[in-house]
Design a protein around this nucleic acid. Structure first.
Ligand code: MN
Ligand code: MN
Ligand code: MN
Ligand code: MN
Lengths: 137, 137
DNA sequence: GCAAATTTGTAGCAATGGCTACATTTTGTA
DNA sequence: TACAAAATGTAGCCATTGCTACAAATTTGC
């Protein structure tokens, strides 16, 4: 028997995971760019209200990805740092790959923002291979 | 100024449409495979309860994509047929492209199910070009 | 130091898509 | 035809992510 998992997984949970990945990646980015990350910075980056950011950060703190204190800056836990690093690598691979096949930078950034969350390790490996980032065939 | 739309905003818009696209595509598939599509068929295909299917179908009917009657089969409106056709083409392009770069069929099907909703026309064109489906360079 | 501006928090609402439990309708079969 | 099984509908719950309005805290500027 094939034992192939159904491609239509729980959409709600998938989207929640996408949110987590984008937020920790953004937090790491902002920390690097401006020294510290605030709720307001994330609201601007994500183009949502500060209320939405606050609630999502609560969930991510509950999940052990984010460290928060009232009215204070937004930090990443070791687990959050790990996820942020992995997310960034994946993001960069997808963007570079799309550009390599002829997609403009603007579109590559747009499409990668969504596609990155759906590229499995196998697909990422194929992209890296195509980019020449892997010696193996 | 750049005037680039925010990538996160675009991704959120993509997510709003993805359920509709997957459902009309599934309805068309099931109609072809077994003559008619029932709520139960969709529940099995999507791996969700029949309740979830019913509510989503109501929304799609409201949007003019699906034709329904109580306890009856699920049909597509002309608009739904159009979306189903476009979705299928896009799905096939993404799957074929992933396989072409060395991804297995199972993984290609799985990843494409999510990635397809985030691939812009420009990216799809690049994929078609790579597949040799377009004469142009 | 104090008032104003900014930032963050909280309350409460909506849309979407999960679910279980139960009601109703349709279908199948004895 | 009558009863059982299957399919569908409805009620009502939860989680996630949007929002506005308002409250509280912090920072800034004078
Ligand atoms: Mn993303
Ligand atoms: Mn990203
Ligand atoms: Mn997605
Ligand atoms: Mn899909």
């Amino acid at each position: 028997m094939s034992n192939r998992p159904n491609p239509f997984v729980k959409t709600r949970r998938d989207h929640a995971d996408e949110t987590a990945e984008d937020y920790v990646e953004a937090i790491a980015d902002i920390e690097i760019a401006s020294g510290s990350c605030r709720v307001k910075d994330l609201a601007e980056r994500m183009q949502v209200s500060h209320v939405t950011v606050t609630r999502i950060l609560s969930r991510l703190a509950e999940a052990g990805l984010v460290a928060r204190q009232p009215y204070g800056p937004v930090g990443l836990t070791p687990q959050g740092l790990e996820m942020a690093a992995a997310s960034r690598v994946r993001h960069e691979v997808v963007v570079a790959f799309l550009e390599r096949i002829g997609v403009s930078n603007a579109t590559a950034e747009h499409d990668a923002e969504g596609m990155e969350h759906h590229a499995s390790e196998e697909t990422l490996a194929a992209m890296r291979r195509y980019l020449g980032l892997i010696e193996d065939a």
